[in-house]
Simulated scan of single mutants.
Amino acid sequence: MTKKNSKSDIQQSKAPLFVSLGIIIVLILLYFLVPSYQQFLNEAWQVLTSNDETRIENWVSEFGWFGPVVLILAMVFQMFLIVIPSLALMVVAVLAYGPVWGSIISASGVFVASTTGYVIGKYFGPVLVKKMIGSSSEEKLENFINDYGFWAVVITRFNPFLSNDAISFVGGVLKMGYWRFIGATLLGISPLILFIAILGNNTESMKTGLIWGSVVSLILFVLYVWWDKRRKKSS
């Protein structure tokens, strides 16, 4: 009975993968059959992957009031297209809309993207998540969240060097409480957004500060993990 049930579970868990493949096929067909859709995607790809913040800012500004929506959607899609860093999109939001509205747009983008990743992980299951981020990364993040829970999400969000987006998927797979997860996400990302808002107009100083801040926070966290593991072994 157990073996039959496990086989049935595996087959059911693959169903969302087939649905996702179906959606991808439809989008590919639209790309080749609808010229305006193809043109927009080509332009969006070229601009968002250019690493030219001024070019991205100008492109986003052309959308007027719809620009913030474009940035938020870009933050969602960047979970699947790693070549578009979410940090760069936050910088663009601040440059295009100022420190206050840029921060609000950035926080909204992180909120929507994190919720999307969480829902995918929770309802589409580990099979799809492993396909997307790899079995090794998924297992490491699972252990990380199991060991440190709320603070694992906070630290990961705070440090751009860590797997920011992958933790959303894994948080959903582990069925971590949604409000606990999203609270940790917003708490961890807030200092980063504030830092970008303050130094957004001076990109060189901001990049230097982000690198040093990330390195220091990463070293401190590694030391904490090392100390915590030694403490657990001794007890």
Results as ranks from 00 to 15, higher is better:
70 V>K: 05
52 D>R: 11
82 I>V: 13
79 M>S: 01
71 L>G: 05
71 L>M: 13
57 E>N: 10
79 M>D: 00
62 E>N: 11
81 L>F: 15
79 M>R: 00
63 F>K: 02
53 E>H: 12
55 R>F: 04
57 E>Q: 13
67 G>T: 08
81 L>Y: 14
74 A>P: 10
77 F>T: 15
75 M>G: 06
73 L>Y: 08
78 Q>T: 10
75 M>Y: 01
56 I>F: 09
52 D>N: 15
56 I>L: 12
47 V>C: 10
83 V>C: 07
63 F>H: 03
78 Q>E: 09
82 I>P: 08
64 G>T: 03
74 A>R: 12
54 T>V: 08
48 L>H: 02
70 V>L: 14
60 V>L: 09
56 I>N: 12
77 F>L: 15
50 S>E: 13
77 F>V: 15
66 F>S: 09
80 F>S: 10
66 F>L: 14
77 F>E: 13
76 V>T: 07
48 L>R: 00
79 M>V: 00
67 G>C: 11
78 Q>A: 06
68 P>T: 07
69 V>E: 00
83 V>N: 09
65 W>T: 11
47 V>W: 06
59 W>K: 02
67 G>E: 13
55 R>Y: 10
63 F>C: 00
58 N>L: 08
55 R>A: 15
69 V>D: 02
68 P>A: 08
54 T>Q: 09
63 F>G: 00
74 A>D: 12
77 F>C: 15
70 V>N: 06
50 S>H: 11
59 W>Y: 14
75 M>D: 02
67 G>H: 10
62 E>C: 00
66 F>P: 03
60 V>I: 15
80 F>P: 04
74 A>N: 12
57 E>G: 05
72 I>K: 03
67 G>W: 07
69 V>S: 14
60 V>C: 04
75 M>H: 00
70 V>R: 07
52 D>F: 08
82 I>D: 01
71 L>Y: 04
65 W>S: 14
52 D>T: 07
64 G>M: 03
69 V>C: 05
49 T>Q: 06
83 V>Q: 14
72 I>L: 03
62 E>H: 11
67 G>I: 12
62 E>S: 12
68 P>G: 06
72 I>E: 04
50 S>R: 11
57 E>V: 13
51 N>T: 13
77 F>R: 11
61 S>I: 04
57 E>F: 03
51 N>D: 09
82 I>C: 02
63 F>N: 00
49 T>C: 03
52 D>K: 10
54 T>E: 09
53 E>S: 14
49 T>E: 11
47 V>L: 08
65 W>I: 15
81 L>C: 12
60 V>A: 10
